[in-house]
């Protein structure tokens, strides 16, 4: 598509940039997830275990294709929604609606500033564009609007819950909704339901990361002119895992990222070369070799 618009070279470059962007966002999502889980629930578990286990199931679903992701999302979405709603409902007794006041007390500017932060999540809807070819007819448009609206509604609901509960202190917490769930105590039986929040994180993140991985996987597949993608899938996962490291204070960023992206490009380069040279006729054998190469590279 992009190639048709921008011409061969520029189109390809743009495509790669777009892919790298997705890789970056995917990595950031995984990093968020891993830090959330390891910071709040599994302090003594190596973060690699948490990341790798999630990437493993994501790779599994990417292997089965877009339909499987859709079905999984169909199953998990009601579960996530139910968990969130249960949390919100159980918090109702502790809410104080006056915390919302004053509305627009400092004029509209802070609100507008706030919008930009939220844009970070909404920009992930750009992934939908890549699902369009899989959708029959013009239903995609409506479904897209619905999902944006639903995401907005959920965010409003959760943000209001947190605001009603903590008031101005809400900004003190990294994970305010998790903190809120710790307040829940019903009938001396249901308490400390933060595991429910974790469950919704795991399920939601799973769907998101799989979509990113699928995007990168299919994208690089197209760049490689539709070659077998087992190796690409793995390299995507590994690269995403490396990108995750970006932004941790002690790694101080960019150098590491470019090193890793370099690796990703390098892996793909190897892969392209092997595809082009067709040294190994047997595809699975070739894949096996590349996976071995990748694993070696990853261990370095």
């Amino acid at each position: 598509m992009i190639e048709a618009v921008l011409g061969r070279v520029a189109g390809r470059a743009a495509g790669i940039l777009f892919l790298l962007f997705h890789l970056h966002i995917g990595g950031a999502t995984i990093r968020d997830y891993s830090e959330f889980i390891s910071g709040n629930f599994f302090q003594r578990t190596p973060i690699l275990v948490i990341t790798a286990s999630m990437l493993l199931v994501c790779a599994m679903v990417v292997k089965s294709g877009v339909e499987t992701i859709a079905r999984c999302a169909q199953i998990f979405m009601p579960a996530v929604l139910a968990l969130l709603l249960i949390n919100v409902v159980l918090l109702i007794p502790d809410m104080d609606i006056t915390e919302m006041l004053p509305i627009l007390g400092n004029g509209p500017l802070p609100v507008v500033k706030g919008i930009f932060v939220v844009q970070g999540w909404f920009c992930q809807f750009v992934l939908i564009t890549f699902l369009l070819p899989y959708v029959e007819g013009d239903k995609a448009n409506r479904a897209g609007y619905w999902s944006v609206a639903a995401a907005a509604a959920t965010m409003v609901l959760i943000n209001l819950t947190v605001l009603f509960l903590f008031g101005i202190d809400a900004s003190q917490f990294y994970y305010p909704f998790l903190m809120a769930s710790r307040y829940i105590r019903v009938a001396d039986f249901i308490e400390h339901v933060e595991a429910m929040v974790m469950a919704s994180w795991v399920l939601g993140t799973f769907v998101r990361i799989s979509l990113f991985l699928l995007r990168c996987d299919r994208g690089s597949g197209i760049l490689h002119r539709g070659q077998s993608r087992k190796a690409v899938r793995l390299s995507c996962g590994i690269a995403a895992d490396r990108v995750r490291i970006l932004g941790r204070p002690q790694h101080a960023g960019a150098a590491e990222l470019y090193l890793d992206l370099g690796k990703y490009v390098y892996h793909d380069g190897i892969y392209c070369l092997s595809c082009v040279s067709r040294l190994d006729r047997d595809r699975s054998q070739r894949d096996g070799k590349i996976i071995a190469l990748l694993l070696c590279a990853y261990l370095i």
């Binding site: 889980i37 629930f41 599994f42 578990t45 275990v49 948490i50 286990s53 999630m54 199931v57 599994m60 679903v61 089965s64 294709g65 339909e67 499987t68 079905r71 999984c72 199953i75 998990f76 595991a195 974790m198 469950a199 795991v202 399920l203 799973f206």
Partner: peptide
């Protein structure tokens, strides 16, 4: 892995079930 492990197990199971077909029907 505690509840996380359980969740991952369930996810893996759902993935398998979602990709499974019986005579072409999901």
């Amino acid at each position: 892995l505690g509840l996380l492990g359980l969740m991952l197990g369930v996810i893996a199971l759902v993935i398998h079930l979602a990709s499974l077909r019986s005579f072409g029907e999901p």
